[in-house]
Amino acid sequence: MDLRQLEAFAAVMSAGSITGAARLLGRSQPALTRLIQDLENSLGFSLLHRSGPRVTTTEQGLRFYQEVEPVLAWLRQLRERADAIAADKPRSLSIASIASFSVGMLPAALRRLGLDNLPDQIHIRTAIAEQVVQDIATQVSEIGITSLPVDHPALEIHWIGEAPCVAAIASDDPLAELDCVPLSALAGRRLITLANPFRWRRRVDLALEANGVTPAAVLDTNTSNAAIMSARAGLGVALIEPIIAYGMPVEGVVIRPLDVKISFFWAIVTPYGRPLAALVSGLIDKFDEIGRETIPGFVRHPAEARQQLVADLARPAYSSDC
């Protein structure tokens, strides 16, 4: 396989058709078809199902694209860095982050570094926690923000943050009048929360069980901003991590602490053994600075506390003083 074949396949995945991909790349449709066929021959499996002008991706094609996409991203960044070296400019900055940080704390942290200190090219890749870990481990990105648990030998954990989750409530909901929302108030209500059962959602489920609270229904999603907007629409009460809650205020939604502390943990990570650029080091410091200023109950833990904190994820939450 070669780079032209990979780019052709990625273009088809983006455009949804051979014709659209040919337009994107400025090539003829027969030439693009040939590149895809040559790639399939070299791989030994089909990437696309073909039905006349329509194409759909095979299961193997979807799995292969998950490998291709970060490789092409890395190559694009390599070109940019080569151009920056030639022009004697600062290198580009690549960041991988779970969604709550990429829309909450990350833009503010970049702004505090000073616009004049930022490189011409900044890449923010919003992804699920597992993909953030993969991006850092393969050095596609230079710095990542991910939720716990995280355990990978190719990662350097700089510090771990902790803060209690909060309730996001529509402003016309009676619970919005309270200064502190009892977890028991969720009994008989629709709960809006995150879907991944192996991360923070597990803490929520343990807290509900330990306190004998049974929601009437559950709406789960893979992003906190979707949970907030669902609460705004009056679909229920959202239990969300505090990063996006305080970092991206939404009109029509109020944020309230809970009477039960359900901790959310996150880690700032970089590729293991890779020297930190001054910009990356500064960004790590800004995350700490903004966390202390904007997130109630923020605690910074050293990297060495990871194992104990991961063990704590399996324990029920406890009463809060709110």
Rank of each mutant, 00 (worst) to 15 (best):
H152N: 15
G236C: 05
L258M: 03
A314K: 14
W200I: 07
R315K: 15
Q131N: 14
S17G: 05
A311N: 15
R112S: 10
C165L: 04
H49M: 11
H158A: 03
I284C: 06
C165G: 13
L24E: 14
S147M: 04
Q77D: 07
T214P: 02
P174G: 02
I85W: 08
L48C: 12
S147I: 06
L183V: 04
H301Y: 03
F287E: 11
Q77S: 04
Q131T: 15
V166I: 03
A84S: 14
D321L: 04
A216V: 05
M1N: 10
R203Y: 01
W159K: 07
L178H: 00
D2P: 03
R50G: 08
S92N: 14
I36R: 08
K286C: 02
T58W: 09
P316W: 08
R203I: 03
N41W: 05
N117I: 00
L148Q: 02
R50K: 14
N196S: 07
G236E: 11
A8Q: 07
A154K: 06
E59F: 03
V166D: 05
L115T: 13
L72K: 08
A109G: 07
H158Q: 06
S184D: 15
V204W: 04
W200R: 03
S184L: 04
N196I: 03
R112G: 10
L113E: 06
A278C: 01
I290D: 12
P249A: 01
P90K: 01
S141D: 15
P90A: 01
P257D: 07
F101G: 00
L93F: 01
E209C: 09
V68L: 14
R79A: 13
T56V: 13
A31I: 09
G212D: 15
M13Q: 14
A317Y: 00
I160G: 10
T146Q: 10
V299S: 10
E241C: 07
S97M: 02
I228Q: 06
A168L: 03
I36E: 15
E162S: 04
L106E: 08
Q308K: 11
A170Q: 11
D312H: 05
S92E: 14
A267D: 05
D259G: 01
Q77M: 03
L48M: 12
E241D: 14
D179L: 00
V55M: 11
R203L: 02
G297D: 02
H152A: 08
F9K: 10
P149R: 09
V250S: 03
A207E: 09
L113C: 03
L78K: 13
L258I: 02
